[in-house]
Amino acid sequence: MKVLTTCIAALTLSAGGVSAQAWIHDRLAGAEVVYETGNDAPAPTQSWDSEGGTVYDSGQPLLGQHTGFWEVRHGQYCSYFGPVDHRDRDWTCWNVEFPTEDTVVFSAPPGPWIGPREVTGRFVR
């Protein structure tokens, strides 16, 4: 049944419809993930609340923790970590997939990009 649910969700997400918007929001709201690093460094974490707030903790003392905003736009996960007075611009949007019940994958859309093009996280809450 989990495989069927994941397949149906993937089809819904690929359609980019209104139900995809709600499904992504409902899956992330109240959740926390630990991101894969591929090395021995402390793993970054991120949490989302249902009101549009998000906290990204780099796991690195020098890089620290960042509080921002999130929403779902046109079937993509979008976040903003800048000054509140610039919230009307400068959002970064990612394609999002949930390949398993406890995994989320954010991937950069085509085009110029700085940083990793794909990030995988494991739900811990």
Rank of each mutant, 00 (worst) to 15 (best):
M1D: 11
K2N: 11
V3P: 10
L4A: 15
C7E: 08
C7M: 09
C7L: 11
C7S: 11
I8S: 10
A9Y: 06
A10W: 07
A10C: 03
L13G: 11
S14P: 00
A15I: 08
G16W: 00
G17E: 01
G17K: 03
S19C: 09
S19P: 05
A20S: 14
Q21E: 11
Q21M: 07
Q21S: 11
Q21K: 15
W23N: 13
H25I: 01
H25T: 14
R27E: 03
R27N: 10
A29Y: 06
A31G: 07
E32L: 02
E36K: 15
T37I: 05
T37D: 05
P42R: 10
P42C: 07
A43H: 13
T45N: 04
W48C: 03
W48I: 00
D49E: 03
D49N: 15
D49P: 04
E51V: 06
G52C: 04
G52M: 02
G53W: 01
G53P: 00
T54K: 08
Y56N: 03
Y56I: 00
Y56M: 01
Y56R: 07
S58E: 00
S58Q: 03
G59S: 06
G59P: 00
G59Q: 02
P61H: 05
L62V: 08
L62D: 14
L62I: 02
L63Q: 13
L63G: 02
L63A: 13
G64P: 05
G64D: 00
Q65F: 00
Q65V: 12
Q65E: 12
H66F: 05
H66G: 01
H66P: 00
T67A: 13
G68L: 02
G68P: 02
F69L: 12
W70M: 01
E71A: 14
E71H: 13
V72R: 04
V72S: 02
R73Q: 12
H74P: 00
H74E: 12
Y77M: 10
C78N: 07
C78L: 04
S79E: 13
Y80T: 06
F81H: 10
G82S: 10
G82T: 05
P83E: 12
P83R: 15
P83Y: 09
V84K: 15
D85I: 09
D85A: 12
D85H: 14
H86R: 15
H86E: 14
R87A: 13
D88G: 15
D88C: 08
D88S: 15
D88E: 12
R89V: 08
R89G: 08
R89H: 13
R89C: 08
R89S: 14
R89D: 10
D90Q: 14
D90T: 05
W91P: 07
T92I: 12
T92M: 08
T92A: 11
W94M: 13
F98W: 06
F98A: 07
T100D: 14
T100Y: 10
T100G: 11
E101R: 15
T103Y: 06
V105T: 12
S107W: 01
S107Q: 06
A108Y: 02
A108I: 05
A108Q: 08
A108P: 08
P109Q: 08
P109M: 04
P110T: 06
G111T: 05
G111N: 07
P112A: 15
W113R: 10
I114R: 15
I114H: 11
G115N: 06
G115I: 01
G115M: 03
P116M: 07
R117T: 10
E118A: 14
V119G: 04
T120P: 04
R122S: 10
F123T: 03
V124N: 03
V124Y: 02
V124K: 06
R125I: 00
R125Y: 07
